[in-house]
């Protein structure tokens, strides 16, 4: 005895096919807001390390060598949870909708960004990433009283060449004390 329900469903699926043609056609459903592969925006990253602090499985690592700071996401450990996207102050990380990430070699599954650092002229140590200093200067100068703008710009150019320890040591020589702005 033939089952009537099975026949009815079979005719319905002949009329409208449910299967997608994936490797030979587009994937099924990729809405916006989907959490796929995380990608860095090279111009916006300031190298602050906020994403490194908040990553739950510790998939983000920071390495410093040769005057450059390199931030790396290990895609094999990443949970694709989008916490780094929420925490980043410059919106430099976005989770795109790419999901085809299979590789033959595990060391290729990573995403990196490199930021150069400023060298102190007195002691030679690398003390801060360069985009941080230039962004701070632009933001301070855009909101300050135009009367003080010129002095502050000149001072900024001198002070941003020394690390905080050397700035304290050479404070007399550089005329570095906050009261001169009052």
């Amino acid at each position: 005895m033939v089952n009537l329900r099975v026949l009815v469903e079979a005719f319905k699926s002949l009329a409208r096919c449910v299967t997608i043609k994936y490797p030979f056609g587009p994937p099924a459903y990729t809405p916006e807001g989907m959490r796929g592969k995380p990608e860095f925006d090279m111009e916006k990253c300031v190298g602050c390390g906020g994403c490194f602090n908040c990553c739950p499985p510790e998939a983000i690592t920071i390495m410093e060598e040769d005057g450059k700071r390199r931030i790396e996401i290990n895609l094999g450990k990443c949970l694709y949870c989008a916490t780094c996207q929420e925490v980043c102050p410059e919106d430099a990380i976005t989770l795109t909708s790419k999901f085809e990430l299979a590789v033959y070699d595990l060391s290729q599954a990573k995403e990196t960004v490199e930021v150069s650092q400023v060298k102190c002229e007195n002691c030679g140590c690398y003390f801060a990433p360069e985009p941080q200093i230039s962004k701070v200067r632009d933001r301070v100068l855009s909101k300050i009283n135009p009367v003080q703008k010129e002095t502050i710009e000149k001072d900024f150019q001198v002070y941003s060449k020394y690390c905080p320890t050397c700035r304290k040591q050479l404070s007399f020589k550089l005329n570095y004390h906050p009261r001169k702005y009052y």
Binding site: Y29, P31, G33, M34, R35, A82
Partner: peptide, 15 residues
């Protein structure tokens, strides 16, 4: 699962 993907971004393990 399509509703999950629209609202939260992932089909399974929607955080």
């Amino acid at each position: 699962l399509d509703i999950f993907e629209m609202v939260s971004g992932n089909r399974v393990l929607h955080a």
